[in-house]
Design a protein around this nucleic acid. Sequence first.
RNA 1: GCGGCGAUGGCGGAAUGGCAGACGCGCUGGCCUCAGAAGCCAGUGUCCGCAAGGAUGUGUGGGUUCGACUCCCUCUCGCCGCACCA
Length: 724
Amino acid sequence: MAKYDHKTIEEKWNKVWNEQKINTVDTKNASKPFFNLMMFPYPSAEGMHVGNMYAFTASDVYGRFKRMQGFDVFEPIGLDGFGIHSENYALKIGRHPKEHARITEENFYRQLHMVGNMYDWSKTVETYNPNYYKWTQWIFIQLFKKGLAYRAKSEVNWCSKCKTVLSDEQVLGDKCERCNTVVIKKSLEQWFFKITDYAERLLKNLDWIDWTSKIKTIQKNWIGKKTGYKIKFDDLEVFTTRPDTLHGATFLAIAGHEDKFTGKKVTNPATRVKIPVWEAEYIVADYGTGVVMGVPAHDERDMVFAKKHGLEIVDMQPDEAMKKYAVEYVTYHLRDWLISRQRYWGPPIPMINCPKCGWQPVPEDQLPVLLPDIEDYQPKGEGKGPLAGHPEFYKTTCPVCGGSAERETDVSDTFLDSAWYFLRYPSAGIDGKPWDKDLTNKWLPVAMYTGGAEHATLHLMYTRFITMALKDMSYLDFEEPFQKFFAHGMIIKDGAKMSKSKGNVVNPDDYITKFGADTFRLYLMFLGPVSAGGDFRDSGIEGMNRWVNRIVKHIDLQLGKTSNNDQLVSRGLHKFIKRATEGLESRKNNLLIAGAMEFLNLVESQKAILDSSQWTIFIKLVAPLAPYLAQELWNRLGNTGLVHSQLWPEYDPKMIIDEKVTVVVQINGKVREKFEIESDNAGDEAFIQHLALESAKVQNYLKGASYRTIFVPCKLINFIVNTK
RNA sequence: GCGGCGAUGGCGGAAUGGCAGACGCGCUGGCCUCAGAAGCCAGUGUCCGCAAGGAUGUGUGGGUUCGACUCCCUCUCGCCGCACCA
């Protein structure tokens, strides 16, 4: 028997599928739209590693399942290739970011073709294409017009290695999200988006959106709503959660670079005592009111501060009456989104600064503001990006007064590129507008979004904000972008995180070439639930390859033979349908594979010959996981057309009940005897009790003692012996 | 410190409160082979036993229940998010 030749077979079906454009969705006329989206990939090196492949496959399996359930599944793909992650890698290997993007795109798309995902290749989106970032700039302008984009000087995060500012979300602990350099604070004038205006809505909607609870919790913590009080000390307002300790306040503290007395004194409204106002390092400027009342007797940090600087300490007990000086006030941990970056590889911020008229948006008919091709694209590091060295780029005229003016030379954050890409997909290729409203309403919000949990406070927060803002400007009719979000797990290698420095990065290409896309997909999905990720081990994939060959061998051997199987096999198949359906819906693809293996084991142990309709069901069930294998076998069984557009099989509820069941006899909860019983009798308590009492073993345990029984139909009978 | 998640054989993992360890990997023995590879068959939580069988067993300690991997409480460990947050 010839082995399953995955290479030839995959090539054959790829050719047929591409010619027939089977994955191209008629976005206008689809009757049961289902937008199945995978989180936008952002390659940091040239290609994909096995972790990316895992996530994409998990998403694709779900999409294929939904397609077989009769939905018009739209599964697009693209590349988030603009931005600091791609740029840093390009800088590292000394290649122009634009050239790097071209190479990455080619390689990335080649790999995605290899793994057999059902992408609609007619609607790809790449963030660095001018016909895309034109609209990224357009969104910036809409936010500016709405008052949601503003320029301000403040203490911002600065990465000295990436030589740019970063948003709060891009600082992990105290390090740069991209390069792990410790981030310092710098006082710079920058562009911000007013995401804080949406803090309450971002929080409230978490109550109803259907997302993984883990992500919701992280977002909730990040938004960090806290209800407290404001109390006036003359012209200064403090924020506190403990107004009942007001009479113990002996100083006020405002944010500063060092601890020092400001020279100013204010009145404690409760005690009428004049107390000093200090600058203190431990105060966070933009939390609450940025002013704290120091109550040494009640707060450890205040005590440390008071002792250190010899401030008065007043002993006291909390007093609810103090609340009369306080006004309730809500504050959030969330800060505004710092959007400008002093870098090259991003969309230029479409703003013009006129000495007379101030900041003006670039007129929309002049978009896009093209990113110029320059050779000195390396970051500069003086609070200015590479474009600031190019007067031919920034010298322009004011759109209002026509006088000479200068363009903004910073580019926008990558996360703005990816904050709206899903809106572009259904309308990809359409000119003159960012998206077609009818298409958008047909396909969005996204029905199923699969992605990594690490984006809880980054991408997933930004997209929600941008969607809400666009809704408020009437560009959209919905305010939450993703109906469902499912967080997939991570793939590790031999117990450790994959990283270049450890040298344990798995390149999927080698495995797909050696074992084929189907074995590779099955192996990844068999590791465990999609939410859990898994550990990639070479030994496991060989086992999966054996199983693929076993399926093929079985079906080939049975072709043309007269079927011969009984109720046991037939019931096994229905049980498999049930398990497969439940497994896919709950993203536990491992359960489907285990079910398929069990069924094949049953067929072998029974030496059963299945008829082609039975094999057809089997093949349909494995089709979402093993697309080439399923199509090939579908064909060998004499079927025509596409297995992937067949309807998903339904099980017969009568057929998932076994003809015979094992009923267990317990004595005081311990299993002592088992009976194989016809299902019809297994619910008959008197019958089973009688049967149990006939058993010598049971009699031996009972020894004539009195007892009562618990009976669970079809499962067990438990004798509880009375002990005196 | 605050918040979340998790802990089941050598490994990945299964189990609507009802036979723990499905399925797979690995391992052991056998068949086949000159030999190997592949394939096939059998076994595989731990302890006692030739076996039949018994005892024990889901991180710790308790609770609820006829019955707990599953529900409740305590603790330990691990992972993740936030944090001079007033």
